[in-house]
Design a protein around this nucleic acid. Structure first.
Lengths: 110, 110
DNA sequence: ATCATACGAAACCAAATGGTTTCATGTCAA
DNA sequence: TTGACATGAAACCATTTGGTTTCGTATGAT
């Protein structure tokens, strides 16, 4: 009954600077672990664990290709963050919030 | 030399659901610890610690008023989150990203 | 077949996290 | 001045986190 629930959410996933950097790197396209871990000081295994957290949050997908595992960025879970943030935007930047409503609702804004 | 560096950043601060809830509560206005901790199952001390994390991230201020400590929401640090997110928006919502550039740069967008 | 490559799993570890309870202190009220 | 209220500090604890090293196992190249 039902798939395993994700053990990490998007908020936890982006809390770590290394994981944020991984996401950035992956916006340049799908990459195997070896290419990614080459960008970090930590061990390949550690990077692999970070990627797992990102995957559990739905922010990356894995795909085996021969002996490589290729990771790809999935932006969708970031919408939750965006929505969460949107609520607070009214407290520091009305202009942007209004524009978002224009776009999303198709309404004129004054 | 220099002030104590903040031990928590905004990404860590919002990683915890209780802290996100605290921020929401505080958008309704400045409130003392007792009012806030009344909304949670955990102890007053635990809520106090969460508020400290938020304060270290710059998301709340404290002010002593008699025997109370009143906490208030400060939205500014969320701009860092917004900016971080903005980079990724192009990967799932071009329309919004283009509008933001129009607003921020004052440029036409095609 | 052999060997190097690419990776995951497991065991381990130190430090951080999220919570508790107890205690001390300052403030307001009677 | 006595006592209740509001809070922070400290000590403590279990679990999670972020890292390591070692080992096993596919896969691809020679």
């Amino acid at each position: 009954m039902g798939q395993a629930l994700p053990q990490h959410d998007v908020y936890q996933a982006i809390a770590d600077p290394s994981r944020r950097r991984l996401l950035r790197l992956l916006t340049q396209g799908e990459q195997p672990l070896s290419a990614l871990s080459g960008q970090f000081d930590m061990s390949r295994t550690a990077v692999s664990k970070h990627l797992r957290v990102l995957r559990e949050a739905g922010l990356v997908t894995e795909r085996r290709a021969g002996r490589e595992t290729r990771y790809a960025f999935r932006p969708e879970p970031l919408t939750e963050l965006r929505d969460w943030l949107a609520y607070f935007e009214q407290f520091w930047d009305n202009k942007l919030a209004m524009l978002k409503h224009m776009v999303e609702d198709g309404n004129a804004a004054d």
